[in-house]
Amino acid sequence: MVNIVFKFFIAISCLLIFRGLLAEPLLDGADFDYGEYLSGQCLTCHQNSSDEGIPAINGAEALYIAKKLILYKNKELENEVMQLVAGALDKEQIASLAIYFNSLEK
């Protein structure tokens, strides 16, 4: 009996640790449809047809996008337009944009 409880405990612990590794707090609350709508604001400038002057971001890693947006939001990266856009996004919106752009073809 003790053995079974111990195995169960180990299994649950492993599951929780594994989930912890997988789940990325920056992407918590991501909503794909919301990301698709919000992306409209980005797509005025960011298109994969051109990488000149403004980077193409379709298909970029979700975490990369989220981290960049947070850096712009905190004004740790320079660019007035991006600081303005990111400054008006909350955590859920950043996560939603990150997973949406990640889903697009490079």
Partner: peptide, 17 residues
Amino acid sequence: YEESIGWYNGITTDMFS
């Protein structure tokens, strides 16, 4: 200025592609 070129390419793609 270079950013404006990126924007021009972006918005016209957003309108016409």
